[in-house]
Design a protein around this nucleic acid. Sequence first.
DNA 1: CTGAATCCGCAACGATACTG
DNA 2: CAGTATCGTTGCGGATTCAG
Lengths: 117, 117
Amino acid sequence: MKETNQENELMICTKSDLSNKINKKWTMCIINILGVEEGKRFNEIKKDSMGNINSRTLSMRLKELQNEGIISREVKPKAPPEVRYILTEEGWALYEALQPLFNYLDKHNSNGSNQNN
Amino acid sequence: MKETNQENELMICTKSDLSNKINKKWTMCIINILGVEEGKRFNEIKKDSMGNINSRTLSMRLKELQNEGIISREVKPKAPPEVRYILTEEGWALYEALQPLFNYLDKHNSNGSNQNN
DNA sequence: CTGAATCCGCAACGATACTG
DNA sequence: CAGTATCGTTGCGGATTCAG
């Protein structure tokens, strides 16, 4: 219910808040990629994710983000079809909201970055 | 490698950045709970999570956060042992970095909050 | 009370191959 | 290029039990 919490504090995140919306494995990464440079294509996003995300997962995340109104899908009907993903207005708001977090992560990953998984 | 990216932009999050550090199901929720009111006990955190997190997961997340230096565990050796979890300095930095995100989520969840999962 | 440990089912993720 | 299909693996989540 997310009741606005009669005790003035404890604005606790429910499952739906964090888990469903952005707390999936590549969601924030994708939003970041599309925020840094808009109009990315499917395989560009893939490449920007350090090549780690696979087609299946990327496809799923993109679809979810569309349903949530975070991104929109633009298709240019050419011979080789060209699909680009861009942030919606709400998507930009989310991207902005994520900036401090990304900054934090940048700072605290100067040391060993990727050792496991 | 997280190479500081010769092309001045595209500071893309690697797996280790988001996935390992905070992008696990209850991590951000726990950080939020401990940020709103420090010195929480195990079962208090559980309750604040809307009772949805279970002991096993909470235990794992708390241990991970300790290893990452986000929280510390304070034990008061009393007859009924009292254990409290508090944010470290780094934990507070992370909590602060998460505030815009929480605000965003608050705003955009005024509508249907918890239906699934 | 504060956890840790075990078992198990399920959902998410990953690798690969394949289609329009 | 932009995905979809299939399948294997991993990880999470719930329930329960145990220890200090």
